[in-house]
Design a protein around this nucleic acid. Structure first.
Lengths: 202, 202
DNA sequence: GTTACGATAGTAATAGATCACTAACTACAT
DNA sequence: ATGTAGTTAGTGATCTATTACTATCGTAAC
């Protein structure tokens, strides 16, 4: 009888905690996730969390770290295999959409974290993540301009802002409808308009 | 000596309360606004708020009502004076940007409200607001298509999603930089890309 | 005009709930 | 047997909402 172990290692618990937070954020307001809710989801008591994390803030930080790593690795891999800068941008977009569809709480957590008043580490991590993301976008866009695929007059900073806004708009739409499936369904049509805005004229 | 009245009428207090919430949302995380913070801002004690509102939720509802009314009236007025559908869309956008620049907490409140778990009235009000907003966008875009100003193949639903995402992207950028001024500064360049995406080919 | 009075605006204090976090104890694994 | 994972039962802080009391305002009688 494969009796599953009742005690997990500290490392495994930390990973499971992050997963619980990501899952919970998909179902409810990230700002309202309590340590009790996290522990319940893991089948633990609330106090047990503080065996592995000194504070709740540390849990949030670990979650942001997980998100940043996973997201950047995913979009990088997608961009690598693309034939051209514009194709890489589209692959990045679709991969991002895929990630968000699987983890609908993530963009909400990021946005919520950016709103926090103080100068928390978690907030800084989100800022760094988005800046790294934008840097990748700008690099691809500059390459696309050089190669003539994208409009020569394109403002890459503005285009990067709009790229992220495109995803944010889809997230907002899914919140409006209460259906995460909306994101994937509407993504291609929305991106088509975006692409038309940055491409060089035929 | 013009001794200013120490007591305000119930109606005036309600309006002042909404204003305090809007102002506070510009400075801090809307989710973290407490009744004490609202009362302090108004120069009242915390309990006094409950003379005019039965619950905190009612304060939020009144605020959402104020926001919806003001925003829709503003953009409607802007769209009315425009010479063409595309010009009306641009006027709507710029007016919206102007509104958001004056009240930076508003888009954050709306997004935060959409994330709430339950089926609150405030959430429903935000959903209604955005749907009415999208309806105006779609009507203008259909007119623009009919008149040849906008691309005949334009997916108006997707274009409406992207219109809102464009603003959301600018709001996110201002949160990243910590400067509200970013919104106004970057808005024209970002909208230019959007417009290029929906216009008919030259 | 002053005064008395009823209605309403606001205060002070606190109740009750919830939250993050802790300390003392227990179960488990190697 | 020893270190670690987890539990139980709290503590103190914070937040919404209530209650009993007080201050102020408008107004009607004299």
């Amino acid at each position: 009888m494969s009796q599953r172990p009742q005690y997990l290692s500290a490392e495994d618990r930390r990973a499971a905690t992050v997963q619980a937070v990501v899952d919970l954020a998909a179902e409810q307001n990230p700002a309202e996730i309590t340590t009790t809710a996290i522990a319940d989801r893991m089948g633990l008591t609330q106090g047990a969390l503080f065996r592995h994390f000194p504070t709740k803030e540390a849990i949030v930080e670990a979650t942001m770290s997980w998100v940043g790593e996973r997201l950047l690795v995913s979009v990088d891999k997608a961009a690598e295999g693309a034939a051209s800068p514009a194709a890489a941008l589209e692959a990045m977009f679709m991969t991002h959409i895929d990630f968000v569809s699987k983890h609908p709480g993530v963009p909400r957590m990021l946005f919520g974290e950016l709103q926090r008043s103080g100068e928390t580490l978690a907030k800084r991590m989100v800022q760094t993540l988005i800046r790294q993301y934008e840097q990748r976008l700008r690099r691809l866009m500059e390459a696309g301009k050089a190669q003539g695929e994208l409009s020569a007059e394109l403002d890459v900073d503005a285009a990067a802002v709009l790229f992220i806004g495109t995803i944010q708009g889809l997230v907002m739409q899914s919140l409006l409808a209460g259906k995460v499936s909306r994101i994937r369904r509407d993504a291609p049509a929305v991106f088509a308009i975006y692409r038309r805005g940055i491409e060089s004229g035929t």
